[in-house]
Amino acid sequence: MRVTVTVNGTTETHDVETRMLLVHYLREIRGLTGTNIGCDTTSCGACTVLLDGESVKSCTLLAAQADGEEITTIEGMAAPDGTLHPIQEAFHRHHGLQCGFCTPGMVMAVASLLKEHPDPTEVEVREGLEGNLCRCTGYHNIVQAVLAAAHSGELVP
């Protein structure tokens, strides 16, 4: 079937299999391999992207369901000149990543979280990230990074 999807501001139209998942569409059709696949049960959150500004797990959406929608992936977070988004920068400054596999999904989940909770407590951050698994960091520095990003004054709501 034919789908037209705007990804990181660029709109393209492609023919895809009806069963193609959004994550495969992003990776294989759009060539945006920053979004990772970590499980098959909507559990790990590695594939999290923004759909109209809200975090979703792109392994649990058909590409067909994203037809006509606006998607933001990790590749759309940094400025065109390569300047990291304040959330990315906070992950860097607070060592909120190690192997980096969960990181794109984690960053996108945080972007959505901070939109809904611009001034979160530590508990709100931890609960807000309940759908994203990380095996390296023990989450300690991720939480620090999110709190720092929230309070950096650099996030545009």
Partner: peptide, 14 residues
């Protein structure tokens, strides 16, 4: 960090 944070890092699947 930069490559991993920006999605530019390449894992085998990529």
């Amino acid at each position: 960090d930069a490559a991993l944070l920006s999605g530019e890092a390449r894992f085998v699947h990529d």
